[in-house]
Simulated scan of single mutants.
Amino acid sequence: CGPGNSATVEDAATDYEFVIKHLVKIRTVGVSDSTDYPKFDLVLLSTGSDGHVDSLFPNHEAMELKDDWVTYITDSP
């Protein structure tokens, strides 16, 4: 998904998850001992005017996804 591409949010999420999994595989990014999910030293988040954090909306169906490392939202409340 480079500049000028008309990639969808689905494509961007898939590509980003692939990159993270590759970085974990080659040990550039470490994993949690208890979950095997990536362990980041720093994560930048922002909050929306209603208090949501980085498109994580309470009770949104995306919060139920447990197998995906990356998701997206096209229907923010």
Rank of each mutant, 00 (worst) to 15 (best):
H22Q: 03
A13F: 07
F40T: 04
T71E: 01
V53A: 02
N59Y: 07
F18R: 15
G51C: 11
E17S: 09
A7R: 07
P77I: 10
P77Y: 10
V9I: 14
K25H: 07
R27D: 00
S46A: 11
N59M: 10
L65K: 15
S55Q: 07
S46C: 09
I73W: 00
H60P: 02
K66M: 09
G48F: 06
W69H: 05
D54A: 13
E10W: 08
G2T: 02
T14V: 12
A62Q: 08
V29E: 01
P58M: 04
F18V: 05
D15K: 04
P77A: 08
N59P: 00
H22R: 11
E10F: 10
G4P: 03
A12Q: 03
V31F: 06
D11K: 12
M63S: 03
D75R: 08
V9W: 08
G51F: 10
V31T: 15
S49Q: 13
I20M: 05
L44Q: 14
S6N: 15
L42V: 14
T8N: 01
S49N: 12
K39H: 06
K39W: 05
T28C: 06
I26F: 02
T47S: 12
I20Q: 00
K25F: 03
G4I: 04
E64P: 00
T71I: 12
G30E: 09
V70T: 04
T8K: 04
E64G: 08
D33M: 10
H52Q: 08
H52E: 00
V53W: 02
D41V: 06
S55T: 14
I26L: 03
H22E: 04
D50Y: 09
S49G: 10
T47G: 09
V19P: 00
N5F: 09
L56P: 00
T35N: 03
L42W: 07
L65E: 15
E61I: 12
T71D: 01
D15W: 01
G30K: 13
K21T: 01
V29H: 00
P58E: 04
T28F: 11
S6Q: 14
V19M: 04
A7K: 08
D36V: 06
H60T: 03
D33K: 14
K66H: 11
G51I: 12
D67K: 13
D75G: 03
P38T: 06
G51V: 12
N5V: 09
S76E: 11
A7I: 09
H60A: 09
G48M: 08
I73C: 05
I26D: 00
D36E: 11
P58Q: 04
K39M: 05
H52L: 10
